[in-house]
Simulated assay, not measured.
Amino acid sequence: MTAMATLWERWGVVLTVTALALPVAAGVAAAATRRRRRLGEPTAVAWYRSCCEVGAVVGTVPWLWMVFTPADGPGGHRLVPLVDLVEVIGRDVGDAVVQIGGNLAVFAAAGFAAAARWRVPVRWIGVAALCAASAIEAAQAVLDIGRVSSVDDVLLNVCGALIAARLGRRLSVPAVAPA
């Protein structure tokens, strides 16, 4: 089975629910924009802020659902940095893309939004991502849900948040003052 077929078999429900939630998220962003407009914010600023806030949630929750879904297998711990990463890269290319890309994406939306919407310093986004990713890996170990708790997952989660935060900072609208 190809990596994409495996991906769909394992995560099709999460992907489908996420796709179905997008119109709801757009409605929430529109409602938040209307509320902000009533409070006197210009339309573009209100829409920008609302989209960043909703996007952070919609872009993060599915990944959290995935990382806390029980897996078949014994689980375990991998505490030596870069060992898992080298092993993943040595496997099937499709599997490596899914594993690395997925770990980079876990906090990417939150990192992007924090840098763009609230203008949080990128280094603090990295610290927050480090704490959150470490908590996820610790919870996976404690909950014993068949997942491998890996320091490489933490490193990739933090890198994803930092890369997205840099993009968010560059793409933020300068006319939007932080609230």
Results as ranks from 00 to 15, higher is better:
Phe68Ile: 01
Gly146Lys: 03
Ala115His: 07
Thr6Pro: 12
Glu9Met: 14
Pro174Met: 00
Ala19Ser: 14
Ala161Asn: 07
Asp144Leu: 13
Gly59Cys: 02
Pro23Ile: 05
Val120Asp: 06
Arg10Val: 09
Ala25Asp: 08
Arg35Ala: 15
Ala29Asp: 09
Ile125Cys: 12
Ala30Tyr: 03
Met1Glu: 09
Leu167Phe: 13
Val86Trp: 14
Ala114Asp: 10
Ser149His: 05
Gly12Phe: 11
Ala164Lys: 00
Ala3Thr: 00
Gly55Ser: 13
Val86His: 14
Pro121Cys: 01
Gly160Gln: 01
Ser172Gln: 13
Leu7Cys: 09
Cys131Trp: 11
Val154Ile: 15
Ala165His: 03
Thr16Leu: 15
Arg10Asp: 10
Thr2Ile: 00
Asp92Ala: 00
Ser50Ala: 15
Ala29His: 04
Ile100Lys: 02
Asp84Ser: 13
Val86Ser: 14
Trp63Val: 07
Tyr48Ile: 01
Ala138Val: 15
Ala113Gln: 04
Asn103Trp: 05
Gly40Arg: 03
Tyr48Ala: 07
Asn157Gly: 01
Ala135Thr: 04
Thr33Met: 12
Arg119His: 13
Val93Gln: 11
Gly59Ala: 04
Arg37Ala: 03
Ala129Pro: 01
Trp8Thr: 10
Thr33His: 06
Glu137Leu: 03
Asp84Gly: 13
Ala5Trp: 02
Pro70Ser: 04
Glu53Val: 14
Ala113Leu: 00
Leu15Ser: 13
Gly40Leu: 04
Pro174Trp: 01
Thr69Ser: 14
Ser149Trp: 07
Gly101Asp: 00
Arg10Pro: 05
Pro121Tyr: 08
Asp92Pro: 00
Pro70Glu: 02
Val151Glu: 07
Trp124Arg: 08
Trp124Gly: 08
Asp152Gln: 02
Leu15Met: 13
Leu22His: 08
Arg37Glu: 08
Ala135Cys: 07
Pro81Leu: 10
Asp95Tyr: 11
Pro81Ala: 03
Ala32Met: 09
Phe68Asn: 05
Met66Asp: 10
Gly168Glu: 06
Thr18Ala: 10
Val24Tyr: 06
Ala115Val: 11
Val86Arg: 15
Ala46Met: 03
Leu104Val: 01
Asn157Ile: 07
Arg91Ile: 01
Ala177Tyr: 03
Val61Gly: 05
